[in-house]
């Protein structure tokens, strides 16, 4: 489908996607419970910082960081890999492939359509952060808000594209769920989800800066909590969107090759 026609269909795709998200609201709330790890980390790191700050992080800073992490995770997650695995293995992807719109747009619309439901969790958590930590829990200037929004979009795009690429590996591997699990382990270790990346030794930080994981969640959280000046933020955003571009190209290439191998099992 041409880009113009896809964009014309997008409002309906989003509307129907939202209706689905509402239908699966109970499932979503259970998923939210499974993402409460930052709250546990918050308590642990507050204990560590009780007597003296860790790096630049005092107790209040950890509260702000991990509440931001919890909120940003709601906005940057994607589950496309699991869905693609299921649809490839069951052959139900056939129904998507018959439509004159790329399934990639359909998966993206379904993910984005869930945002309003996720905001229902993210906004109260952000308000709580402001109440507990003060106004420094959120961006202070318009440019910081703009950069933060861009970083959240970039973080979601990296998550989504990585999910689709790994999901599409199921065309070649039969199932790529284990690959996704490996990705998630690296994500937890390297993204700033378990601890602020800046607390790691310099060598590790350099390595992490070259990997995509930090840009999924660490960067949006850092921008939300005002960790960077605008120059540094701009460089990091550039790196993030470079990853978006690289993963975008990789996703399209893997998907196109994979669809050629699709066996459309069943039926």
């Amino acid at each position: 489908m041409s880009f113009r026609n896809t964009m014309r269909a997008m409002p309906t795709l989003l509307k129907v996607g939202f209706a689905e998200a509402v239908a699966y609201r109970a499932e979503m709330l259970i998923w939210v419970l499974s993402t409460t790890m930052p709250l546990v980390n918050m308590v642990l790191w507050m204990a560590v910082a009780r007597n003296a700050p860790v790096g630049r992080f005092g107790q209040a800073d950890f509260v702000g960081y991990f509440l931001a992490t919890f909120a940003v995770r709601q906005l940057t997650s994607s589950w496309a890999a699991w869905l693609i695995n299921w649809e490839v293995r069951q052959g139900t992807l056939s129904m998507r492939l018959l439509r004159p719109i790329s399934p990639l747009w359909a998966y993206a619309a379904e993910n984005i359509a869930g945002f309003p439901m996720r905001l229902i969790v993210a906004i109260p958590v952000t308000v709580l952060a402001v109440v507990l930590v003060g106004s420094k829990a959120v961006p202070q200037h318009a440019w910081q808000w703009a950069f933060f929004v861009l970083a959240v979009l970039g973080g979601w795009a990296i998550s989504f594209l990585a999910n689709v690429t790994i999901g599409a590996l199921s065309f070649f591997l039969g199932s790529s769920q284990k690959v996704m699990e490996v990705w998630l382990v690296l994500y937890f270790v390297c993204s700033g989800y378990m601890y602020p990346v800046e607390l790691l030794p310099a060598g590790l930080r350099t390595l992490i800066n070259w990997l995509p994981f930090r840009y999924q969640i660490g960067l949006p959280v850092e921008l939300m909590t005002g960790a960077h000046g605008w120059r540094e933020a701009l460089v990091l955003l550039g790196a993030q969107w470079a990853w978006v571009a690289v993963l975008g190209a990789l996703t399209v290439a893997v998907w196109k090759q994979g669809v050629r191998r699709f066996a459309a099992f069943g039926g």
Partner: peptide
């Protein structure tokens, strides 16, 4: 009805 509406949009 939601699938019908979706197909209307997708098939223009």
């Amino acid at each position: 009805a939601e699938t019908f509406e979706l197909n209307r949009a997708i098939y223009d």
